[in-house]
Design a protein around this nucleic acid. Sequence first.
DNA 1: CCATCTCAATGGGGTATGGC
DNA 2: GCCATACCCCATTGAGATGG
Length: 530
Amino acid sequence: MKCAWQLNDLNASMNLRSVFTAEQQRILERYYECGMINQSKSCFQLILQCAQETKLDFSVVRTWVGNKRRKLASKADQNGAGAQALSHQHVSCGSAGALVAGSVLTAEIAAMRSIQRGPPVTHLLPPQASSSSSSSSPLSDVILMGIYANCFDATVHNRTVTKSLPSHAEMEPPAVQRKSPIIPGGSSVLKCSQTLKPFPSRDVIAPSWESPASRAELRYLLTINSEAPQTPGKGTGQDRTSNTTRQNIAAQEQITPRQVTSDVSAPWLHSNSRKRTLQDRTQFSDRDVYTLKRYWDKGMTSLGSLCKEKISAAACELSVDTEIIKTWIGNRRRKYRLMGIEIPPPKGGPVMFPNHSPLILEDERQTPELGEASEHNDLGSLCLSDDGASDLYLKENDDVNDESDGSTPAKHVTNLFIVERTIFEILWNSCLNMNNLPPQNEEVQFLENELRSQKQKFSKLKSFTKSLLIAVRNKDRKKQQELLASLPQKVNEDWDLGLENHRESGAEMPTIQKESSVSEEEEDMDQMRL
DNA sequence: CCATCTCAATGGGGTATGGC
DNA sequence: GCCATACCCCATTGAGATGG
């Protein structure tokens, strides 16, 4: 493989594209013809296998698939064939698959089905999975049966297993000996699933071991199998499954395979909908989101290679696929744009946290979302909480922000005010929430710790801001400099960074101005004190 | 029960960039 | 210059949550 970013990782920047060898191209084409025709989860396994075979990165293969689709679509448009080109892929694949289905369904699969599943039209899929009307093909049953059976058996599987995409070998049903690669021939389960589907796109149920959320559910299944029965209520935050999903799974737990009957008519053969199984959707816990936001604040704001390390680290920390992280970033970017908040520039290199455990919030440690509050963009991150109050507050302060240069001390003072007020809101909301929660679970402890930390930081910031305001009002530059020198470490760093950026841009060391806005802020401050 | 909202997931368009 | 790759942006879908 000729990947520039691999040859020169240090200089890795955007758009260092791969150049596929003829062999890689051939393999890619082959996989495309065999069903790797979209970027959805339904093709994850194929993409993964293709990536393994071509020794390319998963995302590279995935991107190639997307571009390939576009290329074919544009060609089809030019030929006036419309969507026939793409559908031809489907149909040809599907019809061929239908023709070979009988032969592909090998004796070993049939044997596995009969051994593991009993009646041929029953399966172990969760009811919600079959609700998509797409998961009920007998073939899917074979696949999923194997997965679930394997998972129930895999006592060593836990959260750590999911840190990377599990290879198909790991999840392989013992009864099936898949040959790799499966595309050129051989009787693999995957080939069955792909070739049998006339529309192997959105509506096709993916081999579920590829879905991160499915893996989360599998983890849960493992948990409830290996441990004493748990109430499927509020989780510890380790799982990415929603309560509802857990309940569904728990309910499914009680359903024997014979109780769920699949739809023999296989509606996915006709459906063109994009309906997915419930477990497709990743559910981030509060702690996961908190972690993601920390990475975001550290510059994980781009999907490109610049943030590759951070994305990988975040994926590793949360035990999800990097694609999930990328999707989260993409959606967050969109959210920022919709709200008119400037997206922080991406920062390369690995992310460094003083302490990786979100449960331990030390005094010196930067407050989540606040640590880089003096950076112009992190303000948005800070205020982009999911509650409307903070967002509203951000809008209210737009005017103030617009008046500032972006790197002047006045801007920083403004930011500090906003930070202060937001902290106050957080504290207030936390207090409100705390009063309603029994102090017995992990999340409450987490909130307590965070509250304590926020209180301390709030107190420090408050006194600092007050002193700084006085100095600004008195135009006491010496005092200002003293105060800036005594800034808390993290804030100080950001301050220096801001000044440094300012110097780099050729600007002179700014003096604090904007007294009018400052006095307005002081009034706000007074109001807040009241 | 229904309407509404949030957000993960997905595909497609536009385009910058690098290799040939 | 052309083409392939990579990235960003956007619209859309649909599951789940929530409120009336």
